[in-house]
Amino acid sequence: MGALIAKRIGLGLLTLWLVATLVFMVSGALPGDAAESILGQDATPETLAALRAQLGLEGGELARYFAWLGGVVTGDFGFSLASGRPVADVIATRLPNSLLLAGLAALVAIPVSLVLGIASAMKPGSLFDRLTTLLSVVALSTPSFLIATLIVLVLSVWAGWFPALANVEGASGIAGHFRVMTLPVLALSLSVIGQMARMIRAILLGALREPYVETAILNGASRLHATVFHALPNVAGPIVNASALSLNALISGVVFVEVIFAYPGLTKLMVDSVAARDLPLMQACALIFCAGFLILVLIADLIAILANPRLRAR
């Protein structure tokens, strides 16, 4: 088992390197460099050279790549072009906000999806199941920006219960935070619950057809007992794995929720940096998302290995 885990971790690191390289190549693809885009029409060869030196842009493509990669490994992402501050500092102020948002949304979405998925898988074809399925279909066919927009329209503009903008810095106390966080967390959870509930239902339906579930029922277990204690543990691996993949939906959800609620998080920062062509900042943001994503997928993988006695024995 140790060797298997070591192999997964090694592959994860290799993947991360590949991703970093891709981010560097794609984001720096346009001709001209950051120095030119900052100075624009004011550029003279002298000022360009000076700014390039300041931004660490001298040398060939390859040299810049290795300098950048070396910086990434040591946590030095360079300086933001827009604000001139170190990228690491800018990110440090935003990252906790995004983690809070995503974490709270996961805290809401995971239990709700589990309950919905289990309940509808236990009685396929029932009214409850059809209703859940229909709502999931609608939820996962709706762009996250529409979900967030509709929530603003209904709960903020019409009902006036919560503020439309999530001014976290201005909030004070638990009550104040609750007021500003409720709508973003609601919007984000809604955009992933549909997908997760549907997936849990599908995986669980397959497991419920397994003969060992019938065995449990014929031993006198109730349907709920058989589902929760016999079917669910066996599909824990696939469910965790698939949940990691629906993080994709979560992350893209975060992007829109942060933009629409003007929430001071990392994805808002990234969207702004893309619009401003602030490459060092954007590269760092992209890398952090990919790394976070890969780490979660890796954890999911390890859980799946631990949940399977056949793999555990290796």
Binding site: E210, P211, Y212, T215, A216, N219, P233, N234, A307, N308
Partner: peptide, 16 residues
């Protein structure tokens, strides 16, 4: 009343 299934390999839970 108790039951002995055709394929015990499938009727036993593989994870326990």
């Amino acid at each position: 009343v108790a039951y002995v299934a055709q394929s015990a390999a499938a009727a036993f839970n593989p994870a326990k």
